[in-house]
Nucleic acid binder design. Structure first.
Lengths: 338, 338
DNA sequence: TGATTTTTTGAAAACGTTTTCAATAACTTG
DNA sequence: CAAGTTATTGAAAACGTTTTCAAAAAATCA
């Protein structure tokens, strides 16, 4: 391995001078600077990053912790985070929890070992109190997922509003019996959507029938299963709010199999505006999430915390969601009377 | 920051001894071992990974270079690679080329700076000769994408066979005018599929009509566009081979819009067996790629190269592809006569 | 028992950088 | 021209580990 000493020797200078050239310090004479560059070129010298990290106490790496990449929402999120991080001169370490508490904690150790300069936490398998213990070891922010009381910056989407506008849209289409179908209990994201859902119901004097609640739906297959359960009810809902386009697609696929017309007999609304929502027949009405914006903001915030060296405090950044109306909800059992 | 010296002092021992305990060396008396553990516990000591990397000349990190994560194929690939890498005690750095040559080269610098112990290259924007220059800086293997002459280990799928079985299936269904629709010129993956495609045609005495060739199709939208072009032909193909389920889905969506029946008027076969292929109506016949297996093998190979320290040489690992027949190809214009 | 081997320990060097400190050289300024 | 700045450079220390080397202690052997 060629080191700075080799460069110094070839250039006939001290390694201090070489280092100054590498780091673009002032006060190096043009002649020597040229010599250093020539020597580096000739030897093909590249500074060793472990040595730099040790000395500088920064690794120029950040980690992002997500449940898993196959979920297209997180795929997109991580894609955008990587690009943004690179623009700031940071490398991105990817950590998946696979929905395991222990794995999540394992990844947080990266902060203790100083392997990364900061962490973007986009999952929350553990209780927030458990995460708290890691905060003193380096900057951590949350992205998308969150705990309301967490004393760190949080970049999130307005999920309450998302649940609200989607449900409101269903109600406007004339629906009164609306099912709620999402994935996960622990997630505050799901919880906030439910709050928005309830808010819309309440505004229109509707009450939620708990038989219409499905809280374990993640995949297309789950969606198909949910449809079957709905289909067997004697007074089934006329519309269903889902927590993801995949689940919505599953419900639509199930409906098709059983000859139930969407949206006329059952309206379905998705969440995420994934490609899949444009492919099904009918196309899925959904709620668009500004994933890229959230990614960029998250990177901006974590990078600022890293540079400023200050202990991150409670900050909130909330981005808007947008209703996208396609075919799976327009035209319902009753034409809308507001 | 609490260092090994702090632990040594509190334990009343030298840092050599502490280091030995940390690294589970033999020849440390149980009494002192206990003292060290107590001191570490009390101080909350965690070894600094930059220092370890510098001293040990290994970072326990590998990088994976892919075009982009939003492509669900790469999302799945990286997901599986991360899990496998973790099992081997490695962290995963994610690098996207976004189809840029320069960005790809930038990522390869990680090997020079010793920021990672090895690289899994699953993209190939540059010419192989360009990549060659990086090989002396550390182990690199290719995964999925490849160059036939590359003197490194390659873990790939049998794309020739994939193109062959898919096309053979279409021919068996009675098709004679078959379009070819894929993404990218540079990719050897696409090239090999075309070889398999041609082989199947040739076996049945068919020749390929270049008007039926589309080489820029990546997305659903591209697929829809391709359908339009096919639709306007005066003697259109009766079947189309596509390089991805997304493109196939786009073609099916386009066909539906124009009232063309799939598969009766146009058979479509996809590639990848992504979720999307189970959602469209009709469901898409496709070729299943053993992504997880490829990921695990890649990690095994790169880890072995890292551990053995030996210069990687030309090795080939080829995994099989499997035809999955669904609805988008069964029943064609002519019932099959072999 | 004395000689030999093995176990246990610590001091110091090493990994490859950056930074501090001090010294010298080269300018300014009056 | 002398005094005071400023620019340029190198030696050495520092970052936090692991490893080498040697010494001391303990165990084994004949």
């Amino acid at each position: 391995m060629v080191t700075i000493d080799d460069v110094a020797e070839l250039a006939g200078l001290s390694k201090s001078t070489v280092s100054r050239v590498i780091n673009h310090y002032p006060h190096v004479s043009p002649a020597k600077k040229k010599k250093v560059y020539e020597a580096m070129e000739e030897l093909g010298y590249v500074p060793n990053s472990s040595a730099r990290s040790l000395r500088n106490k920064r690794t120029r790496m950040i980690a992002v912790i997500v449940p898993r990449l196959m979920n297209p929402f997180f795929g997109q999120l991580v894609e955008s985070i990587e690009v943004a991080a690179n623009q700031h001169g940071f490398q991105l370490l990817i950590c998946q929890t696979m929905y395991s508490e222990e794995t999540e904690l394992g990844h947080l150790e990266l902060l203790k070992t100083k392997q990364v300069d900061g962490i973007i936490l986009a999952s929350l398998e553990n209780k927030w109190e458990t995460i708290t213990e890691y905060l003193s070891y380096g900057p951590l922010i949350m992205c998308n997922e969150f705990d309301v009381n967490a004393e760190v910056p949080i970049v999130k989407l307005d999920q309450i509003h998302g649940g609200y506008i989607a449900t409101k849209h269903l109600i406007r289409q004339g629906h009164r019996r609306i099912a709620y179908c999402c994935g996960g209990f622990k997630s505050m994201v799901a919880h906030h959507r439910k709050i928005g859902f309830n808010k819309a119901l309440k505004e229109h004097g509707l009450t939620f029938d708990e038989r219409y609640g499905f809280y374990q739906a993640y995949t297309i297959e789950n969606g198909m299963e949910v449809f079957k359960q709905i289909h067997e009810m004697k007074d089934p809902p006329t519309a269903v709010f889902t927590g993801s386009d995949e689940v919505a697609a599953g419900i639509i696929t199930g409906a098709k199999e059983y000859g139930v017309h969407v949206p006329n007999e059952l309206a379905v609304i998705g969440f995420d505006n994934q490609v899949i929502s444009k492919i099904t027949d009918p196309k899925i009405s959904t709620v668009e999430q500004p994933i890229q914006m959230m990614a960029q903001k998250s990177v901006n915030v974590i990078v600022e915390k890293i540079k400023s060296q200050e202990q991150p405090r409670k900050e909130r950044y909330e981005l808007p969601l947008e209703l996208i109306i396609r075919e799976s909800t327009v035209g319902g059992p009753l034409r809308a009377v507001e």
